[in-house]
Every structure is written in C-alpha cells, then in structure tokens.
Design a protein around this nucleic acid. Sequence first.
RNA 1: CGGGGUGUAGCGUAGCCCGGUAUCGCGCCACAUUUGGGAUGUGGAGGUCGUAGGUUCGAAUCCUGCCACCCCGACCA
Length: 490
Amino acid sequence: MSKGITSRKEDYSQWYNELVNKADLAEHSAVRGCMVIKPYGYAIWEKMQAALDQMFKDTGHSNAYFPLFIPKSFFSKEASHVEGFATECAVVTHYRLKNDGTGKIVVDEDAKLEEELIVRPTSETIIWNTYKGWIQSYRDLPILVNQWANVVRWEMRTRLFLRTAEFLWQEGHTAHATQEEAIKEAEQMLDVYTTFAEEWMALPVIRGRKTENERFAGALDTYCIEALMQDGKALQAGTSHFLGQNFAKAFDVKFTSKEGKLDYVWATSWGVSTRLMGALIMAHSDDAGLVLPPKLAPIQVVVVPIYKTDEESKQIGELVDKLIVELKQKGVSVKYDDRDTQRPGFKFAEWELKGVPVRIAIGARDLQNGTVELARRDTQTKETVSSEGLADRIEQLLTDIQQSIFEKALAFKNERITEVNSYDEFKKVLESEGGFISAHWDGTTETEKRVKEETKATIRCIPLDNKLEDGTCIFTGKPSKQRVLFAKAY
RNA sequence: CGGGGUGUAGCGUAGCCCGGUAUCGCGCCACAUUUGGGAUGUGGAGGUCGUAGGUUCGAAUCCUGCCACCCCGACCA
C-alpha cells in the first residue's frame, strides 16, 4: 500500500476513487460499468441492510423476491415508465451458445427468444403483473412487500457506488385500497429513510418533493431525501413514490371495496441503493481516509499492541482478551490487530484509512501505568486514559462520535443553503461554494431545463416544510409562490 | 452514441519522435536488525511491452485492423 491518498481539496474525484480503492470498499470489475464490492465494503452494506430491514419490518412490511427478467411486453404497458427507462436497458435475446465449427463460441441464432427479456432496471411491472393475481377484494389489501435485489441500468458513464451499470438496492412495492392510504405509505417510507440517514448514517438530509421533470417515470409524486457532499454537490439518497393508479391500470389490477364497488388499486414504490455507500463515504471522510459512523462500522474498535518482546506481547494479549470480552458484552465489535507482520504505525494508518471509529494502542509503558492510548477517528485526537472502566468509556465514546459526526455534517449542510434573489447571484454562489441554493422558480419545466443547460444545476426538491412566500423567478422574472432548492448533483 | 486520450511486472511509470529484446519507484519473497505514527539493509522472484497482421536481418518503438479502459459531452438512483 502506498502512503496516503490525494487530498480532497486538490482533486475531489480522485480522492474519492483512491479512498474507495484503498479502504478496500470496491473496485471496477472486468465487466463494463460494473463494480466488485469487496468484503470490507460489503460488510458496511450489510450493516445498512440490517438496519433498514428491521425498520421495514417495524412498519409492517415483509420481504419477497421477484424475477430478474421482465418480458418486454410487461415493460411497455405503462407508457411513461418505459419511456423513462428505454434508453438504458440490458436485453436478453437468446438462450444458447454454440461452437461455430472453428472452435469459436458464438450465439446460436436458432435459439432466439420469441419475446425479449429485459433485465430489471426496477421491478414495478413484473410485480404489478404478479399483484394482479393476488388482489380481488379490499380484504387482500394492503400488500406491503419489499425486495432486496440487484438491478441493471445501462449507464453511459459510471462511478463506483454512485452510478454503476448494476447495483444493489431494496425496492418496496405496496398496494392500497385508497389514495390517502397510499400517500400516507409513501410519506411514511420517506420518514423511515430520513431516520435511517440521520440516525444511522449520521447524514443530515432535506426532505422534499421532486418537480414534474425530475419525477420517477410512472409516478404521480416523488418524495426524496437530498444530502450534501463535501464538495458542495447534492446527492439523492432515497426516493419514495406515490404511483397513483397508473400501474394498476396498466396491469388491470382491480379490487372490490367494502361497498361492493370495483376500483383500481393505489400504489407506492420506494427504494435506496448501494449509492448510500457513496453518500456515506463522501459525507464524512477526510484526507486520512474513511470516517464511519459507529452504528455502521463493521469494526467499531481496533486494538493495536506495541511490544518489543514476546513477554510484552503476551501480557498485552491477556489484558486485551479481558477488554474484548467486556466490549462484546456491550455489543461493541472489536478487532485485535496482533499481526506481527506489520508495525504499529502502519496499522494506525491502515485502520484510519478504513474508518474504524475508535483505536486503542497498548504498549509496555501502558502496562506499567495501567493506561491505554485512546484515539478517535473523526477528530483524529488521542488521549492516554486509565484502563479502569475502559469498556464503559468506549461505549460512551462511540455514542459521542456518532452524534458528533452528524452534527458536523449538519453544520456543513446548513452553512451551504443560500437564499438568492437574482440569476447572477445564483450563478455566483453555484461557482463559489456550491451547496443548495434556495431560489424562486416559475414552476415550469422549460425554465428548469434552461437553468440546467446553462449552469448544470437542477432542482433537487421542493422542501416539505417550505413556507409560502411571494417572489419572482430568478430566471424569467415571472411570479412565484415559493422557493425551491437548486444544486449541482451527482 | 459523438469528441479526445491511454494500453509496458500486482500497481504507478521511463523508453516510442530517431528500430538493436525493457528503466525506475511501490508492492511481493528470504534473511538480519527493528517495533509509542506508514522501518532499514542485503539478496531474490516476477514481462510472449493490449491483441491480430504488415514492413524489416531485427519491432515496445514504424504502418493497418481489432479489443479494452479512462476523460469530456448526451443519459441517470
């Protein structure tokens, strides 16, 4: 491993790529646009999955699994949906290979599928085709199902975790008897995502609605949480859609109500993906590497021994064994890095790169004094403390770190929400600090698109807690009732 | 899919213009000394120079085709 990584300020993209690689999170695979998530990166994803999965269950949802392949005819049933995804679909056309006689393996043209299969870019269509058989009466509703899966979107340009051709995610698909219930569900899941982002990822988010232009293909309303990265660019961290009766109509899913009336079912879908890994990395990390919030760190505490003799090593080992037992009882995950192939300084740097929240170093000096060196990753500070009551102290420290990482990110985000009242000011802020720009907008897609063309900034959302305020659109000067949040985004 | 670029050891590279069988650093292996912030020394292993063809006595180097990847656009969670 070479020393250090590129500085954030010097080249943010390169810093990100090097960090992802060197912290053993992921790498590009041999397959175009696809990513290999390495064991350490995957361990973080698993922590995220576990927390989210529990939250879904706590809100009444169950997991299920639907096919990877979607017949083209299903896909084309909802007009705006197919339009939204058509340009990025992987399509299966054949089911057999053959030897062409010269030893070369080729696609067997005789084995052409009658109907092409689309590798799911999202599962609304295959799921609604299935729900049709599940729903007859209001008694069958609601259906509250989530699926953990991979999806494929044939992106032109990819970036580890943020945009890859294949990615892992969860997608919830619910069916309801009434519009109100469906909207409530979509809002509830946005709350779940908000709680997860803020309490687990220590990632402050802005909750809002997408404009018509940015809305999910096939949705009537798209709710989202938007986060701010350290380079001043926004990142959509999760979405929850109110789908109305669009998919029910496309797949003819009707139910008989209590009153005996036949009506189409109301739907929602919601999802977060491995993109959250990108958000987690970019929101907190620094030039020394990853900074993980304790709640999502696969290893919360690493213990590094410093010794000269076997005898010292043994004594430290005994002390550490006791500490590990105590910490494990408290549910703290500990790694004792007793490799004798690396020196302490190397280990310090390596665990910092990997974002382990707390490090304990114990050497001969500590054995004599009954102390340890306690270092925290987020502030890069260290202190020598008594080994008496250490486990309690560490437990508290982990809580403090979780909180402190969140507060730091919150302050960063809040400092970078700027109100502007003219297009010149808008462009100036966008160029200098970036971040979210709160500005009046005339409500038209036309204006939104022109601003995007000229500045690359998009409307991230209309915040849910927005207050109404009369003003004039910064671009056209037309009247506006409220401000919206613009930003350059990933 | 348009514009530009790059392919040389596990990684990063020099050499290419001007043809003579490949440079340096990191990493890896062995041994020794080391161990409180990324150790040092000595020795060693590892390459059909992306690929297929052409020119030539001779190609990493010149020419042609192909492939892969990267960057910038358009697209996007």
